[in-house]
Structure formats: C-alpha cells, structure tokens
Design a protein around this nucleic acid. Structure first.
Length: 416
RNA sequence: GGAGAAGUAGCGAAGUGGCUAAACGCGGCUGACUGUAACUCAGCUCUCUACGAGUUCGGCGGUUCGAAUCCGUCCUUCUCCA
C-alpha cells in the first residue's frame, strides 16, 4: 500500500484537483502545505486531523510547510453562518506565537529540507492596495467567486467585502509558496476546498495551465450521530494543557462511541492497517474492554502531551473510576493528580462557592442544582446538602480535597 | 439613494400590553440503565444573600398602574428597485 492508498484507506481523502496526478505525485516527492489561521490562542482537536496529516506527509518523506495565518487571521475565513468579529492585531500576534509552538509537536522543523514553518503576514503586510488589485485582483472573476460554496452560503445572510476577499489572500499564499519553495500540494479540511482551488487556479493563471500543482482535502471529522465533533460539555477540547487538562483530553478520546472508534483510529493514529484491523476484531468480541478507545486515547495524548502526562492521566483515571480515593496516601494523591485542574479554597468554604471557584460550575445556581441532584462528591462521598462546608480537617494532610461532579469531572481543591 | 421586512436566551423559532423568566425544537448538564459506550427514560438549562428577590427579548428615550409586545429615535441585517 503506497502513501496515497494509505490515505484513502484511512478515510483522509475527500476531493482532489486531479486524483491521478496527486496519486503519482505523492508516490514520488512533493512539498505540501497546510494553513492554519490563528483564531484563538490554542489549537483544538478540530485541528488534529490536519496536524497529523502534516506529520504523515513528513514521515512519508515529503517536505512539509506549516503556514500560520498571521495575515489571513486578520481578515477571517467566511463561516457558513455569520460574519466573524475582527481580532485585534495584538491578539493575532499573540495567537500566532502560541500556535507555532503547538504545531512543533507534530512536525520536525529542524531541517529546512524537511519541514518549514512560515507566517503569511511576512509577505502580505507590505503589499500595497494598488498592487493587490492589479497583480492579484485581475485573476479573480467575481461571478466565479460568488459561486464558491463558502461565499454562496453567505449571500443570503450577508458577507462583508473583507471576508469576501479572504479566498484571494489564501490563493496568494499558495502562489508565494510555489514560487519560493516549489510547493506543489496544498491540503486541508473539506471546508477549505474553495480556497485551495483558488490557489491552484491562481498558480495556473500566473505560470500556465499545465503547471503541476495539486489540491487535496480530507473529510471533516463528524460523529456517527451527526453532532459536532470536538466539543465536550459544550466547550472545545484544546491542545493547551492549561485550557484543557491532560486528563480531560485523554477522557475525551476514551469516551468516543464504539461506532466512531475505528474510523477515528484510522484517521488519527499512526498504527498500521494490520494493527487497526486486529483491534477492530477484538473490539467486536469484547466491546466492553474498549480497546479501540484506549489505543486512540493513549496514542494521541502521548503525542500531544508527552509520556509523563499520559501516565498521570491514566493514574487519575484508574483512581477515579476503579480505586477508592480515601485509600490513597497524601503523597500518592498529590503525585497522581499533578497537573489536574485545581484551585484554592479557604477553610470553611461552602460547597457551592467551591464548585464555582474550581470552574466545575458556571454559577452558584448551577452548583446548587447539582448538589440537590446528588451529583457532587467530595473525596469520594456524595454530598447533597447545599449548606455543606469544606473543612481543612477533612482534607488529605489538611491540604487537598477532591471534588467531583458527575462521573467524570473533577478538580483538586487546595486549602490556602 | 428609494421601497419593504427583520433583530427574542448557546442556536433555531413562538409570543405582539398584564395569566411571560418568556411556548416548542436542537444543543448542553445531571440522574437511572450500561461497558466511563450507544439506545431509552426522567429532571435541569438568566442570576442571587432563595418557598423570596433582582436583571432580561438589538441600543437609547417615551406612553402606561403595567411593555418583549405601543410610540420616537439610533444601530445592524435581508429583499426588491436605481
């Protein structure tokens, strides 16, 4: 199975500008690029598939370019629903620096012939309006642009000129990378199809229609029940451990439903076809062991957060679901829960306030309802009195208390 | 520039003077079941010093005993015309 066939088997190919051409190209050598806009100060698991693709390309011997959209991020890729709020220049710069280090976990940038990290702001910031309109604008037919899915969807609800021009900016990136690095493949999620085509079209208009450049997209990750992938408790699962703890990250993957587990393993894991098929087989025989979920969660958590962090997430999991918290020593607890979500409370803190302080609940109102609903446990014991007070003397070493909401959400409360 | 229409909680969408903290659907949370799954069922889903109180229906101002609902004005968006 060659590289292109493998991508297909994994379910990572949706559309290509030229399937035969790209299949050939990927079996020789190419320079492939992926662009990511800095819309937040951390990447989230919605980016994972693409980041892993970057890694796959590099592992397969191709040169990869990770593009951080410092310029495009200031404009905003049109969403199907509504106009984006412009980010401030400071925010974009901050986001760029945060994201760059995260991308480094997936790609090796040590050797320029194997991996390059660029920022499109560098070649866009000096471009004058007149040059933009004369050198690039002429290549874009408005009638053609408004037929692009991303823009067409917005014609009813409204789209600003700013976002309308986004696709031109991204096309300029592909052209720039083609000129400078001979970059001949751009890939991305299927929502990027329009932008990717804009880029290859632009290159062909500038360099001739027989120029060998290719675009390829992968299907967006969806869940079998049709709901949005990548959210937990309504919020994003971030790659930044301070925004989403390693434990939560691990748990997210562990809780993937059976139906989604194998497809996700194919897409996200670097395991071979044989390995994945054997997992699939044993999962069919013993679904309750959730081997696929465990394999998926471990591999991805280790890649993103490292071996030590994974081990700790596993330890916490073990304790929270199988062990008895009260049997642990203070030292064991402290070691196991290192890096877990935590917060400080005072001696005599009411349970409702503590739940809010530790970010387990958004408001005391919510906390009240959960306690009344018998959903909260302190050090393993259910608490259903809304006037319950947390005392130092009940804590481990008079210092640490574990507060749990439901089955899976917990935080460490530390007395001041 | 002109003429219409619309802006309601995370989203979609009712409501068109008091019975409305605002139907319904989705999403989210919790409980039961289970395999930390799926399905199904039940409850919750503005806030708080909580059998009560406060603040909400694009913004501001007004009418009224009383407004998401009426009036004025501003902002935003859509449709059609030029």
């Amino acid at each position: 199975m060659n590289f292109f066939e493998e991508l297909k088997w994994r379910g990572l190919i949706k559309d290509t500008t030229d399937e035969v051409g790209i299949a050939e190209k990927l079996n020789t050598h190419c320079t492939a690029y992926l662009g990511i806009d800095p819309t937040a100060d951390s990447l989230h698991i919605g980016h994972m598939q693409q980041l892993l693709l970057l890694r796959r390309y590099q592992k397969a011997g191709h040169r990869v370019i990770a593009l951080c959209g410092g310029a495009t991020g200031m404009i905003g890729d049109p969403r199907p629903t509504t106009e984006r709020k412009l980010l401030t220049i400071e925010d974009v710069a901050h986001n760029v620096s945060c994201i760059k280090t995260q991308i480094g976990k997936f790609v090796d940038f040590e050797d320029e012939t194997k991996g390059i990290l660029v920022n499109n702001y560098d070649w866009t910031k000096e471009l004058s309006l007149i040059d933009f309109l004369r050198d690039y604008g002429k290549h874009f037919n408005v009638a053609y642009m408004i037929n692009k899915d991303t823009i067409a969807k917005r014609l009813e609800s409204g789209i600003s000129f700013t976002e309308f021009t986004y696709t031109i900016l991204q096309a300029m990136d592909f052209l720039h990378l083609y000129n400078k690095y001979g970059c001949d493949v751009q890939f991305g999620g299927s929502d990027q199809w329009g932008n990717i085509v804009s880029g290859s079209d632009l290159i062909k208009k500038v360099h001739g229609s027989d120029t060998k450049v290719y675009g390829v997209t992968s299907p967006l990750v969806t869940k079998s029940d049709g709901t949005k992938f990548g959210k937990s408790e309504g919020s994003n699962i971030w790659l930044d451990a301070t925004k989403t703890s390693v434990y939560e990250f691990y748990q997210f993957w562990l809780n993937v439903t059976d139906e989604d587990a194998i497809p996700l393993l194919k897409r996200m894991s670097f395991r071979t076809q044989e390995e994945i098929e054997s997992i699939e087989l044993s999962m069919k025989e013993n679904p309750h062991l959730r081997e696929a979920q465990k394999a998926l969660a471990s591999e991805i958590t280790e890649l993103v957060h490292g071996k030590d962090a994974l081990d700790r997430a596993l330890e916490i999991t073990e304790i929270l679901f199988k062990g008895d918290i009260k049997k642990l020593s203070y030292e064991e607890l402290k070691a196991a829960f290192k890096g877990a979500p935590s917060g400080e409370i005072i001696d005599g803190e009411p349970i409702l306030d503590a739940l809010v302080k530790l970010n387990i609940c958004k408001s005391k109102n919510e906390a009240r309802k959960l306690v009344e609903g018998n959903s909260v446990a302190v050090n393993g014991d259910k608490v259903n009195d809304i006037n319950y007070v947390l005392n130092k003397k009940d804590a481990f070493n008079e210092e640490i208390t574990v507060i749990k909401k439901g089955k899976k959400v917990f935080a460490l409360a530390q007395f001041e």
